[in-house]
Structure formats: structure tokens, C-alpha cells
Design a protein around this nucleic acid. Structure first.
Lengths: 330, 330
DNA sequence: GTGAAAGCGCTAACAC
DNA sequence: GTGTTAGCGCTTTCAC
């Protein structure tokens, strides 16, 4: 494999000139530039990124940690982040932590060793103290779905609570009169918020009772079982808000299996806005602006890396109600 | 951040000794080892992977290229590969090529520059000549779903053709008498094979006619439209084999929308075996051994990296019929 | 058993 | 504008 030295020799210039040419900084005469370009072409030379990183202390690589790659939300997020990263010249190391904080810490360690220039962390389990290693080495961090007040960390969240409220309001507007809720893991902040939003909108109504809340785990199977249990307690419920789309899908299955039709007997709303085109009827949902979140995450990270001064450390994104067949009015 | 030098100084030994200790090669006296261990602990020292790569010419990183991270098949595959990679001490750079051969080549370039130790490529679009860059630098490659005869490339495929046959046979056994097929992109080898399997089993039967084959693109939407078109031509069809699960899901939706019930009116089989638990009824499918594929891919790659001699260059994995509700006998 | 020293390929002063 | 050179943090001969 050709090195910068080979190029410099063949082009009859010093490595410094080639380096300047490569990095487009410092002066390089037009002629020099041209011959260098030719030689690079001829030798099919590609700068060695590893050497570059070692010398320049930057790797042009960022880490992206996600809690569950099997939940379509995260591939969608990853894709938008990857696109943005490529635009900036960064490559992404995608790490699936499997919702396991041991794995999470191991990955943080690994990413540090690989000298990534920054990390985007989407995590259910992370705690501020896990970031101290990163802080100490002042690695820029963008945190999704969690807020830790700190000036070297950017936090991106969505209006989870308002989303929960919106969901209930929509169900009521469509004519529901007894709405159940399938909530996600209570260990997850955004999940708790969505449930809080549900309570905001339903507490005080004449139909609300705490047993209308089922506890689940963000999976299709979990949503399915939770729905079955809720139906046993409240066979007359006519609306369901699930804290994510996967649970909503599981709930729909349970409803259909017990002979209820959607939306005429029961209406269902999910949360996330992932592409679940295969659902029949299609699922209404409180959508997160996934691609905007990804793009902003990357923009912010680059801002931190470049030590720009005008970085917004906490951003809260709006959610939007997407009306589909699952909540169509009878 | 502490370096190997800091450790060596504090431990009163040379960097060479520390290096030997770290890599567990060469002799290190017990006492030396102990003090080094202590110092490492105390300094919270972590070897710099970048420097390691530069000196040792290996990065402990592998690349994984997938054509479509939004198709659940690939996250599942990625997850199993990642697990296996972690077991071997490798980190994975996941690259989504978006089914775009320009992006694909760019990623190959990037991965080369990052000095990955090997690459696992799952691609719809790749051609042998795209691997020449990798060959030249003798980067180990494991190819999934494609076979290029070459001794430095391991190819992993599944019995696509037999899977297509199995699907039809199953539908016939369940009582179908007119089976349509939704095939995937003809540019994809495995897709063509699945369709060939369908033809093997259906050509020569009294019901078969070429217009029972619909052409689509491996997406839910595509499967949906293809199904609608097929229904227009053959309203009396009673079985469908789609070349992947996503299209099968789309087909189910189209069938239900047109008032057909599954499985009593029409039975459906997919291909891949991804977790589509939200489907109602659940989808029967020809399953690929996804996690075994991932694990074997990683095992083979490590074999290539270590230049072991007993590497099987072409492996074909069996597929299995998973019977679910979508093909239940009436 | 251990250490000195020569790189790995590149960047970034600094001198010319 | 361009070249010289000293590292970046580590591995790995090779001598002791």
C-alpha cells in the first residue's frame, strides 16, 4: 500500500507538502498540487486513517450507542445519523448495548480506546456517573432521551409528556369513553413521561381508574400480554394508548384475537412513528421527528467537537399526531 | 490520559515489558507483572487502540456492510455478528449501503483507510470487481448471499431455491390449488433463486401460468401493490409465496383489505424468518438460520484473519419451514 | 527476563 | 511556497 512518502518521492516534493495538499491547509503551488494529484491517482494512494488519527488526535469516527437495534426506531435513527455523519466526513461505529449497562460501559471504554471524536448515546440505562470517563477526556457527548445538566453534554429529547396527553385527547375526540394505557418500563424516563401525559389527560375524568394502566416492556409480546390482562379487567374499554408502537402492535393483535375490531370496537394509538406499514389497520401514533433528531444529534456533536460556542445544550423536539385507520371515527 | 510510558515509569520497568505484559507474549517476571497490574489500575490506564493499530497493523475492528438496515433481517444479522465479534475481541463498524453501489464502494474505501482487519459484506449489488481493492491488500472478506469463487473470500448462502420449493409444497399440502408468487428484485441472486424454486414446484401443475408471478422490491409497500395487481388478474388465487417476509406482510394487508381472510381464503408464506410477531395472523415463513449465519460469518472471518488453513470457502445453510397461522389448514 | 531503539504513516511546528 | 523534523503511543526485534 502506497504511503505519503511514496507520493512525495514520486512527486518530487516533501511529505509536508503532500500533507498540506491532502488537508487543504497551508500553501501548495498549483503545479505541485497537480503533480501530487497525478501521483496519487497513479499510485491509487489513500491516506492511512489510523496514522492520521495518531498524529492528529482525531479519528473521523464517532460512536453511536443504541439500546435495542431490533426495535425499528433505532435503525431509523441510526440511518439518519449515519447520513448526517457521512456528510461531515465521519464514519459511525454502531454499538448495540442490548439495554445492558455492563455492555454499555464496555462500549464506552472501547470507543475511548478507539479514540472516537465524539459519542451519541441513546440509552435507557445510562446514569450521569457513567459519563465521567468521557468527561475526563472531554469527549463530546450527545445524549438522546435523557437529560443530564452539564455544559459539555448536549441532551435531545421529545415532548414525551405532551405526546401522552395528545394521544388521549385524540382518542377522546374520536369518541372513546374508556381508555386504557400500556406503559413501558418505569426505569426509562421518557416512558414515565408518556405515562404521566396519559394521566394528565385522564385523571379526573369519570372513567379513569388506575387499573386501566398496564405495565409492559416496549416489546410486541409485552404489549400483547398487557392488553390481554387489561381486557380481562376492563372488557368494555374502547381506546388504548401504548407508550410505543411495538406494544401498540401487540395490543392490536390481542384485541383482534379476542374478536374486537379496530377501530370500530376499540381505537389504538402508539408512540414513536416507526414505519409499521404492515399493520392492518394502520396504526395512529404520536410520531417523533426521527430524522430531524438524528440530524440535530450529529450537528450538535460536530458543534461540540469543533468547540463552537453557540451550542444549545438542551433541545426538546415536538411530537406530532399521525392519524391513521386505527383511530378512525366510527 | 495515561500512556504506556507513564505506566512503565511508575512501575520502574521499560515500555517493552509493559507491552509484553499487555499482550501476554514474551516473558514477564511475576513481580513485574504484579506491579504493572497495580500501576495500570491506579492510573486507570487503557492502551490506545489507534497507536496499537499503527504499530501492529491490526485494528481489532471489522467492517459489516448491509444493504438495508430498515429491513429487520439485517439488524438481526448484525446483532448476531456483533455478539460473535465481541467474543473475539473485535468491534464492528456497521455500514448501511442503502442498496447503492456508489455508497458501497465508498464504504469499502473508508474501511480500508481505517485499517479494518476484515469485512463481512451482505450486499445486493456487489460484483467481484469491487473486491479487487480488498484482494490487493489481502483484506479477509466474508460474503453473504453471494458466491464469488475465490480462495481468499468465504461465501455464505442459504438454500434459496429449495426454500422456494418448500414454500410451494407446503401451500399445496395445506390445500391450495392456485398459488401466486411475489418475487423480489431480479438483480438479486438469492431473490432469483427463490423464484426459481417457486417455478420448480409449480411449473407443470395444471394451475400454473406465468402471470401468477408478480414483480416487486422486497418492501412492504411493494408486496402490497404486487398483491393487488395479482388479485386483479387472478381473483381466485388461494395461496401466495412472497420472496421475503416484508413483501408477505404487505401482501397480507392487500388480501385483508380486499375482504379475503387468511388463512381460510388465501394462505401466505414468506421468506427470511424475521420476527414479525405483530402480524395477525402470524406469518408462516421459510426461515434462514440468521444467528447461525452471523456466528459462522464471524468465525470464518477470524479464520481468514488468522490465516488458518482449514477454512471452508463456500457454505450453504439449510432453511426451515416455520408453520404459523397464515397457512393453517381450513 | 528485560531494555534500548527503530519504526508504523501521518501532522504540525518551525525554519528557510 | 516548501522542506526538515519531532513526535503521536505502541509493538517488536535484538542485544544484554
Amino acid at each position: 500500500m502506497a504511503t505519503i512518502k511514496d507520493v512525495s518521492k514520486l512527486a518530487g516534493v516533501s511529505v509536508a507538502t503532500v500533507s498540506r495538499y491532502l488537508n487543504k491547509n497551508g500553501y501548495v503551488s498549483k503545479e505541485a498540487a497537480e503533480t501530487i494529484a497525478e501521483v496519487i491517482e497513479k499510485l491509487n494512494y489513500r491516506p492511512n486513517n489510523i496514522a492520521r488519527s495518531l498524529a492528529g488526535m482525531k479519528s473521523a469516527t464517532i460512536g453511536l450507542m443504541v439500546p435495542d437495534i431490533l426495535n425499528p426506531f433505532f435503525p431509523e435513527l441510526a440511518r439518519s445519523i449515519e447520513d448526517a455523519a457521512n456528510g461531515y466526513g465521519y464514519t459511525v461505529m454502531l454499538c448495540n448495548t442490548d439495554n445492558d449497562s455492563v455492555k454499555e460501559r464496555k462500549y464506552i471504554d472501547t470507543l475511548l480506546q478507539k479514540q472516537v471524536d465524539g459519542i451519541i448515546i441513546s440509552s435507557y440505562t445510562i446514569k450521569p456517573e457513567h459519563l465521567t470517563g468521557l468527561q475526563k477526556q472531554s469527549i463530546p457527548v450527545v445524549l438522546m432521551d435523557n437529560v443530564f445538566s452539564s455544559d459539555s453534554v448536549v441532551s435531545l429529547t421529545v415532548e414525551n409528556r405532551r405526546g401522552g396527553e395528545l394521544a388521549v385527547q385524540h382518542l377522546l375526540a374520536q369518541g372513546c369513553s374508556k381508555i386504557a394505557h400500556i406503559c413501558g418500563p418505569l426505569t426509562i424516563t421518557s416512558s414515565r413521561e408518556r405515562t404521566a401525559g396519559f394521566e394528565d389527560a385522564s385523571r379526573g375524568t369519570d372513567w379513569f381508574t388506575p387499573s386501566l394502566i398496564g405495565y409492559s416492556d416496549f416489546t410486541v409480546k409485552g404489549g400483547y400480554s398487557a392488553m390481554k390482562e387489561l381486557l380481562a379487567l376492563h372488557p368494555d374499554l374502547d381506546g388504548v394508548f401504548a407508550s410505543n408502537d411495538l406494544m401498540a402492535a401487540g395490543a392490536m393483535k390481542a384485541l383482534q384475537e379476542t374478536g374486537r375490531s379496530i377501530p370500530s370496537d376499540v381505537k389504538v394509538v402508539g408512540f414513536d412513528g416507526i414505519g409499521l406499514e404492515m399493520m392492518n389497520p394502520e396504526l395512529s401514533t404520536i410520531a417523533q421527528p426521527i430524522s430531524e433528531l438524528g440530524k440535530t444529534a450529529m450537528d450538535s456533536l460536530v458543534g461540540l467537537i469543533r468547540e463552537e460556542s453557540d451550542i444549545v445544550t438542551d433541545q426538546v423536539f415536538p411530537v406530532t399526531l399521525i392519524k391513521k385507520q386505527s383511530t378512525r371515527k366510527n
